[in-house]
Design a protein around this nucleic acid. Structure first.
Lengths: 161, 161
DNA sequence: ATTGACCGCTTGCGAAATGCAAGTGGCATC
DNA sequence: GATGCCACTTGCATTTCGCAAGCGGTCAAT
C-alpha cells in the first residue's frame, strides 16, 4: 500500500507530487514572495488561486514533506508555512522553468525581470538563494549575499524608471 | 483573446503548458526512449498512459509547438513525432526533475541509473544530449559524443551484472 | 479484389479534480 | 459580549481524467 505509484521513474515520481497547475505556484509564492500564511498566499496570488485549492495544496505540500506548518504565536488560529530542505531544493527546478518560460512563452516584461536575473545568475545564484531560504525557513545562519535584495532592487528599478 | 492566461509570469506560463501529469511523460519517452510514433508511445509507456490521453497530449504538444508531426512514408496512416527546438530545450528541466526525484522520492534502483548519470553529467552532458536530439529530430549533423550510447551502456550494465 | 490483421485515434461514460460563491466557526479587539 | 477578521469548508456546476470498447483507414497475403 505504501507503493501506490505509476512507476519508479524519478521523473514520474516528481510529476506525481508536483505535476498539477497549482502546487508549484504556491511554492513559488512562498519561496520568492516570502508569503508565509494562508491569507498572504490567497490575497497576494497573481493567478487568483481559489481558497479551497490553496487549502488543499497547502495540506498536500505539508503531507508530502515539502513544507511544514507551525503555529503563529500572535494568532492562535494562524499557521506559518515554511519550506523544508526538500522544498528549498526545488529552486533549480523553478529556475529552469523560468529559463524555458522566458524563451518559449510570452511572459510579461515586468514579471520577467526577476526571472531573467535568476537565470542569468546561474547555479551560484541559486545556491546563494537556497542558503538564504535555509536562513528564512529553517533557522540557518544569515548568509552574506542576499539574492532577495538583488532581485528586489532589479524589480523596483524596472518598475519605476 | 490571444491572451487567455492566468498571469504573465514565466513560471506560470510554463506550468500552463506543461503542468499536468502526462505532458512531460510523453516528452520524456520521445526524448529518452526515442519513441516516435503513437503506437510506440502507447505500448512502451512505463506508466500505462491511456490512449485518449496520449492522443490528446500529442495534439496539444504539436499545437503548442513542442513537437511536430510528419507523415511516415512506410505507413500512410502513421505519423512520426519530432521534438522542436523548444521541445529539446526541456532537457535541463527534465534533468532537474531527475535530480530532485532522485533525492526526494523513492525511485526504483534500475530506473535511477540513467537519471543519476544525467544528473552527474551536468550541463555539459545536457548540452551534448541536446545536440544529439537536434540530430535525431531536426536533421542537424551527428555530433561526436553520444549521450544515448553512454546512458544505454550504463543501463545495460546495471540490468545484467 | 477480398479478406483479415493491425494500428492510429475516437467515443461513451463514470469518477475525480477544478473553480466559484457562500458559509462557518475560532480568535482577537474594542 | 458584540463585532470584525481570518483560516478554512461546503455545495454545486463545469471541466478533466481514465478506462474500455469501438471505428475506420491501411497493409499484406491470398
Amino acid at each position: 500500500m505504501a507503493q501506490d505509484r505509476r512507476s519508479g521513474c524519478p521523473i514520474n515520481l516528481t510529476l506525481e507530487q508536483l505535476g498539477d497547475r497549482w502546487s508549484l505556484i504556491v511554492i513559488r509564492d512562498v519561496m520568492f514572495g516570502n508569503r508565509r500564511s494562508y491569507g498572504e498566499l490567497l490575497s497576494g496570488n497573481e493567478e487568483g488561486i481559489a481558497s479551497n485549492i490553496l487549502a488543499d495544496r497547502l495540506k498536500r505540500l505539508v503531507a508530502t514533506g515539502l513544507m511544514t506548518r507551525s503555529p503563529d504565536p500572535s494568532h492562535r488560529q494562524k499557521g506559518i508555512y515554511s519550506l523544508t530542505e526538500a522544498g528549498i531544493q526545488i529552486v533549480p527546478l523553478l529556475a529552469q522553468m523560468c529559463a524555458w518560460g522566458l524563451d518559449h512563452t510570452d511572459p510579461s516584461p515586468l514579471l520577467s525581470v526577476r526571472a531573467k536575473l535568476l537565470v542569468a545568475g546561474g547555479p551560484e545564484m541559486w545556491d546563494a538563494l537556497m542558503q538564504e531560504l535555509r536562513h528564512l525557513h529553517l533557522g540557518a545562519p544569515e548568509p552574506e549575499r542576499s539574492v532577495f535584495k538583488e532581485v528586489r532592487a532589479a524589480y523596483e528599478a524596472a518598475k519605476a524608471p
